[in-house]
Amino acid sequence: MKVFLLPLFMFIFFVTQSVAAELIPQTFWLGSLYYIPHWTLIFAILIITFYDREHSYVGLLNGLAFAFLTDLVYTNLLGVYFLAYGLALYMVHVLKRYLHKNFLVVLLFSILGLAAAEVLIYSLYFIIGQVDLSFNAYIFNRLIPTLLINILFLLIIYPIFIKKLVKWKYELEK
């Protein structure tokens, strides 16, 4: 049962982020600033830090599955999110061995993972020719708002999920 719970939450966040993108009008209070919800990535990072053990890859696999779904449903190009999320989540997976598990570390992981994934997605699209925004404009109009909005999301879901994830982890070990 627990095996299906995490993908279920991932799916809920996956659907919510697109509906949220439609219902929150962009220009209303942000001007030309854009934010991109990466809620599945944030949740995958939470799973990796608090649920995964040294050699289990639940968070990474979930993240990859939903990255592929993002590619399929929301973009015309398969593989870009897959690669970016994969590399970012693997980086978190390696880093977590060296650090304690507390809120500040999750915050650090989220910022690092988000920035890595976002910049990778931007550069891949730039190489392909999908976007023609200059890097400076990208940093200020897209990357910084994206980081802020996703960290806000982390602040909301962190207290809700953190105890449950740790509990599930120990139930699994028994």
Partner: peptide, 15 residues
Amino acid sequence: AVVARSPERWFQQVT
């Protein structure tokens, strides 16, 4: 009715 928007804002697609 528009039910969702691509959160990926590079593509500007809606469902």
